[in-house]
């Protein structure tokens, strides 16, 4: 079976940094998220609509997943989110992702991915997240 052009986590090492991702957080995206989550609108102290931390963490993982291959049987073990500031809608963000820890066992790989999200305009940090995944080993031939 041919392997896709996506990055295989089993092939990259601890400390690896993915290429920086830039993405725009639109009003439509947040309103769709809030609708799906049956979530209330969140307003900052200035009255602007803000991006919920859970939404931002979810979008950043979604962005990364479009670039990596997760084999069947991969399991999300834990998630840590640390907020550093509010993000208003209609802002561009930078997402930096690195492999913090990776340990290879006989039939699976444990990977910790650290995401740092900053506002493009100011470079101020808004969120740091850590996702721990368990990934079954796959044959790398072919």
């Amino acid at each position: 079976m041919s392997r896709s052009t996506k990055v295989y986590l089993e092939n990259i090492d601890e400390g690896y940094c993915f290429p920086k991702i830039k993405t725009f957080i639109s009003k439509d995206l947040i309103e769709n998220y809030m609708s799906v989550m049956e979530s209330n609108r969140r307003l900052s102290k200035t009255g602007a609509l803000i991006v919920p931390p859970g939404a931002l963490a979810s979008f950043t993982i979604g962005e990364l997943l479009s670039n990596i291959h997760l084999p069947p049987g991969s399991v999300h073990m834990s998630e840590e989110i640390i907020s550093a500031g509010e993000l208003e809608i209609e802002e561009e963000i930078n997402i930096e992702v690195a492999i913090k820890n990776k340990s290879v066992k006989s039939d699976y790989i444990l990977v910790s991915l650290v995401f740092n999200i900053t506002k493009t305009a100011t470079n101020n940090s808004v969120l740091e997240t850590t996702s721990v995944l368990v990934i079954p080993k796959e044959s790398t031939d072919g």
Binding site: S39, R42, E79, A84, G85, L87
Partner: peptide, 27 residues
């Protein structure tokens, strides 16, 4: 991450804007 979002909503209902600025959660 949907469950994480529900936990985050739960905290937002208690703390509002402060949750988005200083909250941390480990799930």
């Amino acid at each position: 991450m949907m469950i994480v979002g529900y936990f985050s909503d739960f905290m937002d209902r208690i703390h509002g804007s402060d949750w988005s600025q200083t909250g941390r959660i480990k799930v």
